[in-house]
Amino acid sequence: MKPAAFDYARPDTMDEAFDLLEHHGNDAQILAGGQSLAAMLNMRLASPRILVDITRIEALRTVGTFDGAVDVGATVTQDRLLRWPGLTTQPLLTTVLPWIGHPQTRQRGTVCGSLAHGDPSSELPLVLATLGGRVILSNAKRTRTLSAAKFQTGAMRTALEPGEMIVSARFPTAQEGQVYRFHEVSPRRGDFAIVAVAVVADSEGVTVGVGGVADTPSVRRIEWLETDAFTDAMNEFAWDLHATNDVHATAETRRGLVRRLGAKLIEEARDALSLC
């Protein structure tokens, strides 16, 4: 299908973008890579009055390490981040990025756009939440920093207010002695994940993030109490997510996947830890 009519604005600076966003409020929608937005517009699931294309704003194109984190500007594509030489500072991103969509969508789809879209099954919100990352938001007057958990408020819902936009996302860089694992299950590679699990382990315990089940990524910390305590912990975690049935999988399948994927990744991470 074709999108409904909209005005198209392409600001060259942040100030111009803020003016537009402030002036048009809820009628405005930010366009970056458009890999989710343009599809929604084509299907008329959304019909903003004006699209604000931020891709030519120089200041939003940067990626670097800042304040102990990989700082990804609003228009940096998933593919560009994947090819960025500094990405070695956060191996979880290196592992996860190739799971997002397809090479074709990653060359246009942005990291921050994926966070702003807030799909419960998408990988980047899960990674940000599991790593304890933050999102930097600005409007014409102020800048604020939100944790991943405060930023994503529900399925396809975020704390972004009218007039505000994501400036960058910060994924904490790897700490010495941390081990990372990620895996997801979907009908075919590149499809929406039925369950995705990310794991960050260190000498004291393991942080487990689960995506695809609840409305937002869920993160839980499990200490290395006794050898097999984590299987019980994963079982509890799986039940606490309140999985529901849909066309892709039953609640039972989802719980089973959370348990098994979780336990498998934790075990792998623990083994890798004992080696280092």
């Binding site: 458009g34 890999q35 084509n42 246009r108």
Partner: peptide
């Protein structure tokens, strides 16, 4: 870059 032309506006 390789992109989906149905997700890009001509402008």
């Amino acid at each position: 870059l390789v992109v989906r032309a149905c997700l890009v506006y001509a402008v």
